[in-house]
C-alpha cells in the first residue's frame, strides 16, 4: 500500500471513530434505567447482537426523561448516548424530527442541514462502513418505537 493509500485508510478510520464517539462510548450519558418509564422498548440488531433498550417518560408533549441500557459495539452504544443527550428535554415532535434527520444522514440523503444535527454529525463517518450503519441507527429506531408506545 502506498503511503497515500495508508493515510486515507487511517483518515477513514479516524472519521468512523471520532473522538467524540469514543468519548461517549467510554463515558455514556443518560445510561441507566428510569424508575417509572412511560414506555420501554428493546431494540436488537440480529446480525451482530447489539442490544439497546430505550426508556422514556413523557411530560405532556415533551420528552421529560430518557434513559437507555444495552451492550454492543462502540458505534451502537455511543450513538445511543449521543441520541439521549440530543433529545433530552426536547419536545416529542422535535425528537421525531431529529430521528428523521439522523436516519436521513445515515442513508446519505442530500440536503440535510448539518447544523441541525450538532454533535451527531460526527456519526456521519459511519456511512463509509456500510455494515456498521445498522449499529448507528439501532438506538434511533428503538427510540421511535418507545415514543410510539408512550404516546399510544
Amino acid at each position: 500500500m502506498s503511503s497515500e493509500e495508508f493515510r486515507q485508510q487511517e483518515a477513514e478510520l479516524d472519521e468512523l471513530y471520532r473522538d467524540i464517539i469514543i468519548d461517549h462510548y467510554r463515558h455514556p450519558r443518560h445510561k441507566g434505567r428510569l424508575t417509572a418509564p412511560s414506555a420501554s422498548h428493546e431494540g436488537l440488531n440480529p446480525l451482530c447482537g447489539d442490544e439497546v433498550t430505550v426508556e422514556v417518560v413523557l411530560d405532556g408533549t415533551d420528552l421529560g426523561e430518557i434513559g437507555y441500557t444495552g451492550s454492543g459495539c462502540s458505534i451502537s452504544q455511543s450513538s445511543a448516548s449521543m441520541m439521549a443527550e440530543a433529545v433530552a428535554g426536547k419536545s416529542v415532535a422535535e425528537a421525531h424530527r431529529l430521528i428523521a434527520d439522523f436516519t436521513a444522514m445515515m442513508r446519505g440523503d442530500e440536503g440535510i442541514d448539518p447544523d441541525a444535527l450538532g454533535d451527531l454529525e460526527a456519526l456521519s463517518g459511519v456511512r463509509k462502513f456500510p455494515v456498521r450503519i445498522k449499529c448507528a441507527t439501532l438506538a434511533w429506531h428503538t427510540l421511535a418505537q418507545a415514543l410510539k408506545e408512550a404516546s399510544a
Binding site: E12, L13, L16, C48, C73, R132, C135
Partner: peptide, 12 residues
C-alpha cells in the same frame, strides 16, 4: 474492545 470494532480495524 467490542468484536465489531476489532473486526472493522482488522478489515482495514
Amino acid at each position: 474492545l467490542h468484536p465489531h470494532d476489532v473486526g472493522t480495524i482488522l478489515d482495514r
